[in-house]
Amino acid sequence: MELVEKLLSGNKRAAARLITLVENKDPKAFETLKEIYHKSGNAYVIGITGPPGAGKSTLTDKLVKVFRKRDKKVGIIAVDPTSPFTGGSILGDRVRMSDLNLDPGVFIRSMGARGHLGGLSESTQAAVKILDIYGCDYIFIETVGVGQSEVDIVKTCDTTIMVMVPGLGDDIQAIKAGIMEIGDVFAVNKADRDGAKRTAREINMMLDFSKSDWRPPVELVVAIDNKGIEELFEQVEKHKSYLEESGQKEVRRIENCKNEIVDLVQQKLMDMILDKSSKEEMINKLSKEVAARKTDPYSACKLVLEKLRTT
């Protein structure tokens, strides 16, 4: 395939087009990925996540510039997992990354949820592979939110930066449960505002309970003024060295691959179960029977599984 050769030679349009094809779930694109998958795995993947409006894009813009100063080729995937009911979306992360636009060593791609469940992390992971093979040394994935979608997406990362802002208060409590596993490095952005030190202290207190060998650092940053960015960069590099020297990078990547396989299987199973032609009809019929107490959900489940096995 011509597209593959172009991608391997570092052609931007080829990378862009292949990402479009995986987003459109084009089976040919996945056939292509099968062929070239063995060439991926060289890029280091960094997740940037946190609440809406925390300054993730602004921070990504500044942090990427530090990597560019060291002449690293960078890919950025800006993911918006929110899925309005029209199916359309406005992807606005590029607004904060205008300067990177003309840098030939940076590739930025925006991705929306397109109304489907689960499919987004599949597309994101495929896009990571494409940018990896395209030749990026580092790939940043920006994603909003503190829900399951972002947990899924950061499962693909080597280092995840959790971006917080002063005065989250109760929000910190709310995301406490997931926060320890997700963040490898914490950035309290908008530290020009009141309460940044207090927020950092609260995060630090929670992290004191962390059992891992890696104690996530908490950095104060002011992304719009480019303050604290070099320090944040150093922390990312430290975490990278920790992963590499401890052997945890390999462990994490195996875990990520496992997650990816399980997700793919789950996705395909869902597609099979909700297959318009036969099974969905069966499920609809069973739902009525269960509601009318003619049968029970456990037996219904068994019937659907049997049907899956025989098709």
Binding site: A16, G88, L91, R94, V95, S98, F107, I108, R109
Partner: peptide, 26 residues
């Protein structure tokens, strides 16, 4: 967006070079 399209919004004061570079990557 409301018509179901995926809009990539790039903001103010874009040069033609910036617009085209974004259009290619996206």
């Amino acid at each position: 967006r409301d018509a179901g399209m995926e809009v990539i919004y790039t903001g103010l004061r874009q040069t033609p070079e910036q617009i085209v570079s974004a259009a290619i990557q996206e």
